[in-house]
Design a protein around this nucleic acid. Sequence first.
DNA 1: CATGAATGAGTGTTCATTCAT
DNA 2: GATGAATGAACACTCATTCAT
Lengths: 212, 212, 212, 212
Amino acid sequence: MAALNRKDRDRLLRKADILKAAEHIFALKGYDKATIQDIAKKAQYATGTVYLYFRDKGVLYCSLLEEKMKDLLAGIKEKTSRVKEAEAKLEIFLEEELGFFKVNQDFFKIFVSENNGLRFAIGFRISKSSVFREYSECVSSLVKKAQQQGLIRGDLYPAQIIDIFRSIFTSVIIGWLRKELREPKDSKEMSRFILGIFLNGIGCKKGLIEPA
Amino acid sequence: MAALNRKDRDRLLRKADILKAAEHIFALKGYDKATIQDIAKKAQYATGTVYLYFRDKGVLYCSLLEEKMKDLLAGIKEKTSRVKEAEAKLEIFLEEELGFFKVNQDFFKIFVSENNGLRFAIGFRISKSSVFREYSECVSSLVKKAQQQGLIRGDLYPAQIIDIFRSIFTSVIIGWLRKELREPKDSKEMSRFILGIFLNGIGCKKGLIEPA
Amino acid sequence: MAALNRKDRDRLLRKADILKAAEHIFALKGYDKATIQDIAKKAQYATGTVYLYFRDKGVLYCSLLEEKMKDLLAGIKEKTSRVKEAEAKLEIFLEEELGFFKVNQDFFKIFVSENNGLRFAIGFRISKSSVFREYSECVSSLVKKAQQQGLIRGDLYPAQIIDIFRSIFTSVIIGWLRKELREPKDSKEMSRFILGIFLNGIGCKKGLIEPA
Amino acid sequence: MAALNRKDRDRLLRKADILKAAEHIFALKGYDKATIQDIAKKAQYATGTVYLYFRDKGVLYCSLLEEKMKDLLAGIKEKTSRVKEAEAKLEIFLEEELGFFKVNQDFFKIFVSENNGLRFAIGFRISKSSVFREYSECVSSLVKKAQQQGLIRGDLYPAQIIDIFRSIFTSVIIGWLRKELREPKDSKEMSRFILGIFLNGIGCKKGLIEPA
DNA sequence: CATGAATGAGTGTTCATTCAT
DNA sequence: GATGAATGAACACTCATTCAT
């Protein structure tokens, strides 16, 4: 925030260079198959330089996730705070994420494999990180507010709802990125579309079955 | 099926030993971090023994996936063929998968990371395998039938619907396995619950928003 | 020599089977790249069976060489003993080896790589074996007799002469087997041809240079 | 030739270290039995270091052969071009190889096992390499010139003559290196000695037999 | 005896990490 | 600080040898 001296500013610039390269390589090859040398070369630094900025490969990976999540979260918080209604908040939340992933498709791949792989396989406890916790809490509060306002069923854990929300969102965005949707809509339309599925399901309104 | 001589039977038993160990190790560590030595040790065989049954690590991994998918698919086909209605088919499909994953939690982890990461990072083209293709076709036909019978919206690609279906399913099952649900219901109830969300969404019936 | 009981006879037959397979495989792949499993399979025995007849891979290899050398040597001794003159002996020696290698081309490859590789690279001390020693002595006595009879220069070690003799012989036979000679002659003609080169060299009789 | 910066020079020095170690180990154990760890240790580097300079074991081996052949060939070409007569060229050729192998005895072993086994067993097609082809062509042209000048019999394929030439040469040099010759002569004398055998054979001039 | 599945030491090769320059 | 060569532990895979059946 405050004005940085040249040294600190340079340091941040280099970190950013490396993170950008890492984002591309990790998205392309996955965590294990990506090598530090790949990343260093992509970033046009020497191998050792990476270690001046990140203690090890794991830290680099986590930093990447956190950095991106921080950006995403900042956008979401800022935009959703502008409206009051839960529904509008959810809509704007979706819109913001759609926009973010549209310009961060590499990160989207990582995010998906991280989030949907549910961190089973990877030894990192990213969810312990503060940005991730904050992101969870942010989404959680959106969902709780929607429950309070009677928009969303109250008989489910928010965590569960978020998972469902996230997974519908992810499915749709993957199709979107694949250009498989009939009409590749803009973020705004897409946001309403996803929210529609989330709230109303995929069923025709004819044969509604009783919720269990 | 046919009576096997001792040799063939033993061979199958040993393959099964190794596959079981592999399932556990792959679920625990992921494909890359899992080592053949880990798997051999877990199965209480020597390293080289694994190679008597599987040409290489990749083949072992694929065999594992295919073997399990074959079992899963057989159950699904058998059970869903007993009913006529699309809705009942979907319900039974869910019930069958729920039951299968309940007793195959290790495989579930692998299945999720394989399926949801959309195979970004892994070099295997498992989806080319006939069992995987057959599984896709099976789910696809269930969904198409549901569309024809007016149960599911007809304005979406089946592939998209399947993704959404699968992602809701996955989210719920993860919560279920984590015992995060208020009342850990049995497979039958859970199946109706998931189908309800899928068809009707998570919204309260009050404030329905218009689908975009 | 004496009549063998069935047990001993069977044992010899099996050894011969294995040696024959080994000959083929060693010729094809070389010592290191050949595997016992290759050989066992070729001989249509189980892997372990090979070890009932040969202590280890090295012994199998050496036995093969010795067995073949014994056959070769027996033929040479028998045939060369029929004539008196050193020149005739040499001629018959060559004829016999040519005939032997013509029907034992696999062994010829092994023999060449063993003999011409000069046992530098391989850890076996085959030359210590009695058959090899005997073979050396046999050729040596032929050469010495030729020296005594004034056929061959007396100012060289027999060992040296044998090496030269052998190497000319080998070169020619390789070309012969490759069918590179203008007229693929029979063993008798070929034998005289080699002997001619050995004794008179490759030079035209015009410009004889003085022996150093 | 051109002045190299320190980096390039160091790189060449290290490559040379490794090649030297490889030469020794390959000569001692043969290609298959030699391990990269042996070579690295001999060169006093870590295992991985070898791979910074040579892509794999095969490339290391081929590089070694090519590097040495290049040196050998350069010497031969330079020296033989100084004289006109075929006989003198052959003599100088021999002299040069004798001198080269005297100071490169390890390489001589490799050269012999590579060349004389006629590459039966080894999967590399080194003969495809340009240096090897060039070497062959060089020797071939020496032999052809000798045939044209009436020094060598014209009724044989050059390839055949070269084989004989090489094999006599090899036999003699091995004896020479073993110090088995009565008087270990210098390269010049030895060269004339070999050429004498090559042109005139090993026979006494008395009992010349008719060439077949 | 014969078998061939099992063994596990050993090899080529990679790559995260270090450190002298 | 930046570099990138060097390191060496680790892994996939092979195969000579053993031994229970």
